[in-house]
């Protein structure tokens, strides 16, 4: 176990060093937070266009939200109950002139000045689909349900030496709101389609039954429940190492969790079910760079052709 841990750290460090030296990632001094080069961003843009082409026949509604969301919306999801250790709460200074001086004084003394802050009305977005649900609150869906194309930066506080585990990264998603059958069919369709799409660009993905990283010992019970119900599948591939595979996409059924919380109903009056496919954009770029080399110009012709680069 210790050996494997050591091996993993070495592999993370080695791939990250390669990426930094090639100028593809730019260090911020904080683990898991990077700037990206034009080449890196170009890969993400090309992959996004590929996702758009792949979903075009389904004519999704397109929505884009910022990486922060209403604190009340955040509290309506069960993120604080299930993954409190990953959240990002935004605080700011709302004090008086005296309190300002006190804070500056603490800063200058190297003391903890953050006690002088108060929460703002917003939280970091933990998953790209969260900002969508309040826009559908108290609505009845059309018979055919709804399909929404989303992309957002999401925040997860899990600093790591693994370049594929960023604290802030983009998810591109197709979210379905509809009947239980429509939601399940969406998940199953994209689980297959996602594998085809990623294999077509030379990423040897496999599908794995998965669970979210629920907090604490109690989280193990939640994880077991999620697995028993086969709600989450991940498409995994070697990125920094083949000793531990990295999820680059996931397909999830949320059952009527969001339908109930936001009172979204189907035409028959029942709470809507939701499901999504998410592509982890930075991870997909990292997997491509690992698999085909750090210079996209030199990638295999068929990969460039599919990605139109």
């Amino acid at each position: 176990m210790c050996n494997l841990h050591g091996e993993l750290l070495e592999a993370y460090d080695s791939y990250r060093t390669e990426l930094l030296e090639a100028g593809l990632l730019l260090s911020s001094g904080v683990e898991g937070v990077y700037g990206l080069s034009g080449t890196f961003e170009g890969i993400i843009e090309a992959f996004e266009r590929y996702v758009t082409r792949s979903g075009a026949e389904l004519a999704p509604e397109v929505m884009r939200f910022p990486p922060i969301l209403n604190r009340k919306t955040y509290l309506s999801t069960d993120h604080i109950e299930t993954m409190p250790d990953l959240m990002g709460s935004i605080h700011t200074f709302k004090g008086t002139q005296m309190e300002h001086l006190d804070m500056i004084n603490k800063k200058e003394q190297g003391e903890d000045w953050t006690n002088n802050l108060a929460p703002a009305d917003v939280m970091m977005v933990p998953a790209a689909c969260y900002p969508l649900y309040p826009t559908a609150r108290d609505t009845i869906l059309p018979e055919e349900g709804r399909l929404v194309d989303l992309r957002a930066f999401v925040f997860r506080h899990e600093p790591s030496p693994d370049p594929a585990r960023m604290q802030i990264f983009r998810q591109r998603e197709y979210v379905r709101l509809g009947t239980p059958e429509q939601a399940r069919a969406h998940r199953d369709y994209w689980l297959n389609k996602g594998q085809e799409m990623l294999k077509a660009i030379g990423l040897p993905v496999t599908a794995e039954l998965a669970n979210d990283p629920f907090f604490g010992r109690g989280g193990r019970v939640m994880a077991a429940t999620q697995k028993e119900q086969e709600l989450k599948f991940e498409l995994v591939v070697p990125v920094a190492t083949d000793k531990k595979l990295t999820a680059i996409s996931s397909s999830n059924c949320h059952l009527d969790h969001f339908g109930k919380e936001f009172n979204i109903r189907t035409a028959d009056g029942n709470h809507a079910h939701t499901a999504c496919i998410g592509f982890g954009l930075e991870r997909i770029a990292l997997a491509l760079l690992k698999t085909h080399g750090l210079d996209p110009e030199q990638w295999p012709a068929e990969v460039k052709q599919v990605l139109e680069i």
Binding site: R217, G218, M222, T225
Partner: peptide, 23 residues
């Protein structure tokens, strides 16, 4: 279930091992 588990552990002074943390 999480609240239930913690209350049971407290009451009976036991700790559920990982193998028992199932549905």
């Amino acid at each position: 279930t999480v609240g239930l588990m913690l209350a049971l552990e407290d009451e009976f002074d036991v700790e559920f091992p990982d193998s028992a943390l199932s549905r």
